[in-house]
Design a protein around this nucleic acid. Structure first.
Lengths: 232, 232
DNA sequence: GAATAATTGTGTTAATAAACACAAAATTAG
DNA sequence: CTAATTTTGTGTTTATTAACACAATTATTC
């Protein structure tokens, strides 16, 4: 089953990335790729550790986050299948500045960065893939700096909900967010305390922008939510 | 004089980056490299524009910043000679998400990104240079997200002063910051209003951590400043 | 170098969000 | 299935920072 998943990854899902490689290179990757399962809330790597692997999320949901003042975490990015992460620190020759954890039971593949680095040195298209990914992430982080520091609480939460929708989409009903997270995670995504996330979310319910049932969030008025995220 | 500066750039200052290239490649760059002077506060490129050039700061000081809510700017990065910028948006195939402006009269070189992209496709070491730069910047931005959102005003300003020191260093006296910026820029660097930058800076003077003479800032106790930037 | 504009400094008030406390509900573990 | 634990929801108070106003000083510009 693991071999099947791997074959699928190399041949289909990641076609855009790995199809670049020749057969010999593909064999190298296939041999080195290790599949690993993580439980809900399990840490994949932690801030301060030395980066060793390129991680590939095959199934599940993963958050990249950074611990801040008084143990308050900030969620920096959300990963979905099939996305890659964990490589930045290696390329920067730094320890990790953020941690990765599974939101829900997840399956990941690990590839030694030393091997990835080797392949990059020979294969420019692979290098360009990372240049492109890093560039998009950097633009996202720079934008986040301004959004999280300057926007007010309502706009920040609205934006977080939009980010969730854009990342994980809706369920079959076309309204329910396809991710269930604790209010604390919602708070950590939008730079506020848990109480304020709860209160602000309730406000949106009162305004009939959302329906909330536990951790299930149904977005009734996405346009209005986008408006709030832009103009407060 | 321009030709002399260019020759110097290609052959000395940027040795690490461009020494990678063969003679033919070097000639391509030399021919395409355009040197341009900017006045104090002049905009080099603006948010929303399409990226066209790789910019190289040869002389002077440059800020990358992003306009936020109510025209309040956030300074994202500071450039010093010889550093490169303006390439991220091109690689991400996006418009610029931030603007670049000269802090003081500055000399820059511009190289068409289309040419840089061509060279990267053939030259892996050049690709790895950009991978490394982007990775370091991304780590910096992710760290900044947490620092600017979670730290209190004193810590944020202390950190901004440390950043100025680490970027531009001290003058011959070993204490005076080698950059003179308006209080507004100091505020835009540390996510606060100009009034708060002024007030907090005065506080540091009272505590004998700094001496301020107009825009000239002398750091008397860097260790204390670092302590404040870490623990508030 | 005088006029004009911009920046700096300071006081005061208002808005915003955090901190804290606690009950109710939901989830998890045994 | 039940007890223990965690999460959610809500009220209240406090801390922090922004907003505004205006005088004094410093830079720019013509």
């Amino acid at each position: 089953m693991i071999k099947a998943a791997l074959a699928k990854v190399i041949s289909e899902d990641l076609a855009d990335v790995w199809s670049i490689l020749d057969n010999e290179e593909k064999r190298l990757i296939t041999d080195a790729f290790v599949i690993q399962n993580f439980k809900k809330n399990q840490i994949i790597y932690a801030e301060g550790e030395e980066p060793e692997y390129l991680w590939c999320l095959l199934k599940g949901k993963v958050k990249l986050f950074k611990d801040g003042v008084g143990g308050r975490a900030q969620i920096l990015r959300l990963m979905r299948p099939v996305q890659y992460f964990g490589y930045r620190a290696y390329f920067a020759e730094e320890a990790y500045v953020s941690s990765a954890g599974a939101f829900e039971p997840s399956t990941l593949g690990a590839l030694p960065m030393s091997l990835v680095y080797q392949l990059i040195q020979k294969n420019n298209k692979l290098a360009l893939f990372f240049i492109s990914e890093l560039s998009k992430n950097l633009g996202g982080s720079d934008t986040k700096i301004v959004n999280l520091t300057q926007k007010h609480i309502r706009a920040r939460l609205a934006e977080a909900l939009i980010v969730l929708k854009d990342n994980y989409g809706y369920e079959a009903d076309g309204q329910t967010l396809n991710i269930f997270m604790a209010r604390e995670d919602l708070a950590n995504l939008s730079n506020m305390t848990t109480s304020n996330a709860i209160r602000t979310l309730s406000g949106f319910v009162t305004e009939k922008i959302l329906i909330v049932d536990g951790r299930r969030i149904k977005i009734l008025n996405e346009a209005q939510l986008r408006k709030i995220s832009k103009f407060g």
